[in-house]
């Protein structure tokens, strides 16, 4: 869907991004991960030409992005940033309607779309439509930010640390809600983050960058279990397998088996908590129940990797 071919960016003589070649496949959620200053935000902004590449090509659905005027290109690409950037002088509805307005949609279609999107991000249109951004909490504001980015139904969504400024509770809720929305819409997402947990938990694919270069691009399992070089292992941390398990529903790891004599846990636990139980009980497997009904068994080696993703 999005192809970077030998893309580079120089400021004067200093390279910010060098010889970057990668393909973000259609419908995937790809995380751009790396320490600060590694060029991940520059890479993201080169896709919608907020930063013009100094060399190489960026293809969107096979088309060179330089063939379009930047404004036209950007209206086809959703954009979400850490500080949300809602327009404080406009209502929530007017904010969400920004791109439809720029595209010249008629009033009825825009209004219907605004309500649809507010519903999608879990904000009641009747309550929030006419509020001002100043009346919203941080989490609500970012939900409006996501709704605004999705308003014109863009096939591609770029996100720059979208959940970075939220408190942990709101962040986790919004991460999962967003993951759900993304799956439903099939949007191709490129998300910049420096949060390893976020990248491992949300990303179908993770691109790890360092000093303007790509170090490894692969699934979270690839990076955690088969790190390309010592930097990847060091950056993710030795506890990366644990981080990967956190937040994964245990049901994804369950396989059929004989639960007799095994410690029993409820399916509401996440995979990391189940691992904790295994360690505490000194057991090799757990019987998993869903509200009392037996679901199956989770074994030690099942917990390696990120399971069968739902």
């Amino acid at each position: 869907m999005i192809e970077l071919q030998g893309v580079e960016k120089r400021y004067g003589n200093a390279p910010a991004v060098e010889d970057l070649t990668l393909t973000f496949p259609e419908g995937a959620l790809c995380a751009l991960l790396g320490p600060s200053g590694c060029g991940k935000t520059t890479t993201l902004r080169m896709i919608n030409r907020l930063v013009e590449p100094s060399g190489g090509r960026v293809l969107l659905a096979g088309e060179d992005t330089r063939a379009l005027r930047p404004e036209v290109l950007r209206r086809r690409i959703g954009y979400v940033i850490q500080h949300v950037g809602l327009f404080p002088h406009l209502t929530v509805a007017q904010n969400v309607a920004t791109v439809p307005d720029l595209l010249g949609w008629d009033r009825q279609r825009t209004a219907a779309r605004v309500d649809e999107l507010l519903d999608l991000v879990g904000l009641d249109p009747g309550t929030y439509r006419d509020q001002r951004p100043a009346q919203l909490s941080g989490g609500q504001a970012q939900r409006v930010g996501v709704a605004r980015a999705l308003a014109a139904d863009p096939p591609v969504l770029l996100m720059d640390e979208p959940f970075g400024a939220l408190d942990p509770l709101a962040r986790e809720w919004l991460q999962l809600a967003f993951r759900d929305i993304q799956r439903r819409l099939g949007t191709t997402v490129v998300m910049v983050t420096h949060d390893i947990d976020e990248a491992l938990r949300l990303g179908d694919l993770v691109a790890l960058m360092r000093g303007g270069r790509l170090v490894q691009f692969g699934s979270p399992d690839d990076l955690v279990l088969r790190p390309a070089d010592p930097f990847v292992r060091q950056f993710l941390g030795e506890d990366a397998p644990l981080r990967q398990l956190a937040g994964q529903p245990l049901s994804a790891f369950v396989s059929p088996g004989d639960p007799a004599g095994l410690p029993v846990v409820d399916a509401s636990l996440d995979a990391r908590e189940a691992l904790g139980v295994l360690l505490r009980e000194g057991a090799d497997a757990l019987a998993v129940q869903d509200g009392g009904a037996p679901l199956g068994v989770v074994r030690w080696h099942d917990l390696r990797g990120s399971g069968r993703r739902p």
């Binding site: 907020l50 950007r74 209206r75 954009y79 500080h83 950037g85 920004t98 791109v99 720029l102």
Partner: peptide, 17 residues
């Protein structure tokens, strides 16, 4: 606000808009 300007550009406003 710099983020409002960044968001506006990122969503495809021309300099005049």
């Amino acid at each position: 606000s710099a983020s409002a300007v960044d968001a506006a550009r990122g969503m495809g406003m021309t300099p005049a808009q």
